[in-house]
Write a protein that binds this DNA or RNA. Structure first.
Lengths: 138, 138
DNA sequence: GTTTGACTTAGATCTAGTCTAATGTAGGAT
DNA sequence: ATCCTACATTAGACTAGATCTAAGTCAAAC
């Protein structure tokens, strides 16, 4: 069903029921879930899985580069399984929903050396904010 | 000393010792403080000021548009007194330090209609990430 | 100088996340 | 097939950051 599990196994990731379930949840729906939402879905497949394990597993998937952490505001972090195609985010200011977007242009090139203050700049995130159709209609 | 206090008074903002101190802290140093850092500095000027008041006051300054809230990660929010000149941020991935930057280009124009999913897009934030000179050197 | 509604306070509470010590188990060795 | 053990999982305590509450205070309109 998924090559995510294959990739992980290939990297020597010790496979457990809990980790499989977390990976399946992320792989299944290409939306941006919070850790608690991942936990809630995981519990339906494996009732005894604990929150700590979900956090641990998400953290590992992030350091393996298989999943992206998205912290657009002070609500819960969200996890983005679409780590292999670079993209940015469009966030609803009201409900927090996130969509992946692919703007044109290259913002990294738009930051002149004089504006880098000696930093080693390695990454840019562009976050568009607005209201989703549901929240704008209300 | 500052026109921030003038502007606030002009808007009918009820002036209290606590609010003045918070405004002065923000106005004084053009860095990006966390709420607790604001509180710590405020306490040196007005020892009995409470954390709740600092939070309230910061929240009001944000809704008045005098101060910007910057939530670049899951650490504490930071408050940016430079609300009147549009800019973006350069963040140190290690220590969380923030610098204001002014990239060229206009990312809002870089998001085609087909990528807007019916959202009413009103704002873009560009966050550059990297290591500051101190953290890169370590 | 009074009045009053807005402001401030200490501390409880909430949420998201991390840590710990005890227990369980995947998967290599035998 | 079973045994080991290093790694994984667990429940629940803990933390940081932020918000809420109810009681007390005070700026400013009169």
């Amino acid at each position: 069903m998924s090559d995510l599990l294959e990739r992980l196994r290939g990297r020597g990731w010790r496979m457990t029921a809990q980790r499989r379930v977390v990976a399946e949840v992320l792989d299944g729906e290409h939306v941006h879930l919070t850790a608690d939402e991942v936990h809630a879905r995981a519990v339906t497949k494996l009732p005894e899985i604990s929150r700590a394990t979900v956090y641990n597993t998400l953290g590992e998937l992030v350091s393996l580069g298989e999943v992206l952490e998205v912290a657009t505001d002070k609500r819960a972090k969200r996890y983005d399984p679409n780590a292999h195609r670079p993209h940015h985010h469009l966030v609803c200011a009201r409900c927090g929903a996130i969509r992946d977007v692919h703007p044109t242009g290259n913002p990294l090139a738009d930051l002149p050396d004089t504006e880098r203050f000696g930093f080693t700049v390695s990454d840019v995130e562009v976050t568009y904010r607005g209201l989703c159709p549901d929240c704008a209609g209300a």
